[in-house]
């Protein structure tokens, strides 16, 4: 962690949620300083949140960055027993109570929460099936056309037989394009869903 003489480091204190750590810069004391800094206490614990580790990692790297940024004051100070670095687990940023309610309804699978998920599943499945069908129909049409109209197989484009062009080259950009498209749609849907839950 930084030094008490440092200006407050915005990276280490996101959103001004937590107070400066009272142990900063002081020699280690026999009593353990409070390791976990709680956020606003009206925020109940998220029961199944997996956000904890990622926040811990973020604050961890931030503290490391601030450590590297001002090494001089530390070096000029008289040697003190080094304070053991603490992991600080930040609370979630405060959310409105409606978003909390939505999350709890999802979590508890109330009829409304289940409906929300069912809608999401339905719309994602519809996108996947439609795009899948598009590719499948195109691919299956190729041999069907050659079967129905054998003469089509003997056409040439720039000296290359049509079947080879259609089979060896064309499907790959098609599949990649559909993949990109689906990825974009799915990510947008998920973002919409998250926005709906959180607002």
């Amino acid at each position: 962690m930084g030094d008490p003489t440092d200006p407050p480091d915005p990276a280490g204190r996101p959103g001004g949620i937590r107070e400066p750590d009272p142990t900063l810069g002081k020699p280690a004391k026999p009593f353990a300083p409070e390791p976990f800094v709680q956020g606003p206490s009206q925020q109940p614990q998220q029961p199944r949140s997996s956000r904890g580790p990622s926040h811990a990692a973020a604050s961890h790297s931030a503290s490391r960055a601030s450590d590297q940024r001002n090494p001089e004051p530390r070096a000029s100070e008289p040697r003190q027993p080094r304070i053991r670095r603490q992991r600080v687990v930040l609370a979630e940023p405060s959310r409105s109570s409606t978003s909390l309610r939505a999350r709890v309804e999802l979590e508890q699978q109330t009829s409304w929460g289940e409906l929300l998920i069912k809608d999401l599943v339905k719309v994602q499945l519809r996108t996947a099936v439609l795009l899948g069908l598009l590719v499948l129909v195109v691919l299956c049409a190729i041999p069907a056309v050659f079967y129905a109209v054998p003469a089509a197989a003997e056409l040439r484009l720039a000296g290359i037989p049509l079947p080879w062009l259609l089979l060896a080259v064309a499907p790959f950009p098609l599949m990649f394009g559909v993949g990109l498209w689906y990825n974009r749609l799915a990510e947008r849907r998920e973002q919409d869903f998250v926005n709906m839950i959180e607002n």
């Binding site: 997996s50 999350r103 999802l106 998920i117 998920e190 869903f193 998250v194």
Partner: peptide, 13 residues
């Protein structure tokens, strides 16, 4: 189903 389909930022995984 919630775990399979809920978007990752909600943290149900």
């Amino acid at each position: 189903m919630l775990r399979l389909h809920a978007p990752d930022p909600l943290g149900f995984m």
